[in-house]
Write a protein that binds this DNA or RNA. Sequence first.
DNA 1: TAAAACGATGTTAGCGCTAACATTACAGCG
DNA 2: CGCTGTAATGTTAGCGCTAACATCGTTTTA
Lengths: 351, 351
Amino acid sequence: MSNRNELPRQRRGSEQITLKQVAEAAGVSAITVSRALNTPERVNDTTRERILDAVERLGYVPNLVAGSLASSRSRFIAVIVPSLANAVFIEVIHGLQEAFEARGYQILLGNTDYDLQREYQLVRTFLGWSCSALVTAGLRHNEACLGLLRQWDKPVMEVMELGEGLDLNVGLDHQHAGRHMATHLLERGYRSIVYVGACMDRDYRAAMRFAGHREVLEAAGLPTPLVELARLGSLEAGAEGLDRALAERPEADAVHFANDDLAVGALLHAQRRGLRVPQDIAIAGFNGLPLGQHVTPRLTTILSPRATMGRVAAKQVLKRLDHDSDNALDNTLKPPCQHDVGFTLSVGEST
Amino acid sequence: MSNRNELPRQRRGSEQITLKQVAEAAGVSAITVSRALNTPERVNDTTRERILDAVERLGYVPNLVAGSLASSRSRFIAVIVPSLANAVFIEVIHGLQEAFEARGYQILLGNTDYDLQREYQLVRTFLGWSCSALVTAGLRHNEACLGLLRQWDKPVMEVMELGEGLDLNVGLDHQHAGRHMATHLLERGYRSIVYVGACMDRDYRAAMRFAGHREVLEAAGLPTPLVELARLGSLEAGAEGLDRALAERPEADAVHFANDDLAVGALLHAQRRGLRVPQDIAIAGFNGLPLGQHVTPRLTTILSPRATMGRVAAKQVLKRLDHDSDNALDNTLKPPCQHDVGFTLSVGEST
DNA sequence: TAAAACGATGTTAGCGCTAACATTACAGCG
DNA sequence: CGCTGTAATGTTAGCGCTAACATCGTTTTA
């Protein structure tokens, strides 16, 4: 026998102050309170004051989960990066965070550890949170992930590298950067140049830079020796990279590192080994971390505008979001848009 | 006249696959699908397979917002830090993120920019998301924020520093660290020691280290000159700090910097200025950033176990969460618990 | 062997909020 | 003076999920 017509079932009492209680306290209906908080301009000034007063008095904290369910949108921006150990991504996150938080969006941060399957999992979770947009590092995703993102109707931003993306794209051309640095090294007169990368199967942007580097050297009829390290960029790894490069190519006169962490590690290590930079060996990096600009000799590197990349990406996403909410039902084309933030060669004394 | 008995109102069709559709496809009720996904062990193996199959086929992505509303808990962990520009917080976040993501929790990241009012806002927002726990840097909060956190019934973890906290606390004793380094400098024979900090009104942990430093020098009957920089830690600021310290105290034989960024910036700058470290001027830092261990001379600093701090904090929080879900209604004491992660003096050649 | 326990699944009623539509009051206007 | 417009507020019905309780067949226990 069921217990119908008895007292209602009890749910775990969440004893939280709700909109309804605020509404009662202010002598209005719930929806008016909702409006007073979300679209204040649509509520009479004196009513709004009364409501805000009640909010304050009762210590009301809006339940954003309920709000999101009802409106089927949260103010979340999903941000997916391949690593938190790398300063580059941190700076991009920083740029994003600044711009999004200023507009009242929350960052939902995910770290794939350079694993595309993990990226897929994160995307699934984030879509489940009705994010307003998703920002992810890179243009490579697995099929499952692409499937999810393609059928999703909110902005998707791919940052870091430039190319054919799903939707929005802000980044730089890594192959070009590789070519640029290789050209610089040739111009400086170096002829035996080793490239040192780390985990380039996963850090494929480093591999793209190597491709550019190789292009230039091959065009000049030079060999393109490559040293690949088993651990990701760090000062320690850079020291190891230098040792291995010189062991495998004793005649090397320059080493082109995949990033500044490696390059600075190598530079400091060279000094400990008593090698003169650049007379005995020239060293070049990529990224333009502040660190590289403070060692002696100053590191020759390529400056990537990381925080700018984050800010620009955020701006583009916000523009799209604003536009979308203006003409809500417009299903017109949203042309994939690409933005090249470029890079700058910074010549130090290390080459 | 109302339009009762007409067709139901239309809501913006979210056209998303829902639990219900999966349930129909699998020939079970919605709750069984819910259980198959959330507590698989409570569903018969063959039923579960049928359900997972339907999930796959339909490309169902669970609506986590709805789930959270119904269960009044999300799998969010709110993490609040005062800065993203500082590697220290990044490493703590990294430690937290590793441990929490492994257990299926999502990090919700907030940055206060050292502003307690901003912290209050973030806490409000995060509580609105029914976070499972909140991790914040430091023990200082404003009254409004304390009020919210005190009446909140989920774990609150305060990291970075040690002391009387709200609930859980993992960190180290900064004043002690300051004393420790000052003692080291005295033992080394330095007698004119300048402390250089940055924005110490906001970075009050640096101020606590200074307090410890001062304690020791005063006990030794020495003056305690202080240089305070207007911008937060960076290599550039460190260079400026050294210049100012030497300008104001030409007789200085050692400079104790509030952190490694400053100290390394100063060290590299000293070399550019032709000063010998430590003969002309000794330099000490705090934090043990990898960078400091790779310059020549190696920086004397205090190693703080940052990633460990994150991991330990996460572990404690997870323990509490597991415990709470076991005996749900137990309102027994949850004693504020304190965990000292300690620190290590790392003596380089810079002192 | 009846009673209690258990395992698997279903039914019902919300969680707290907001979209969509309804109502009211009053202004502007020919 | 009726018409249309608009500003302010209210009513209703979910959003998609899960907690609490119910049901039922199968075991286990006293």
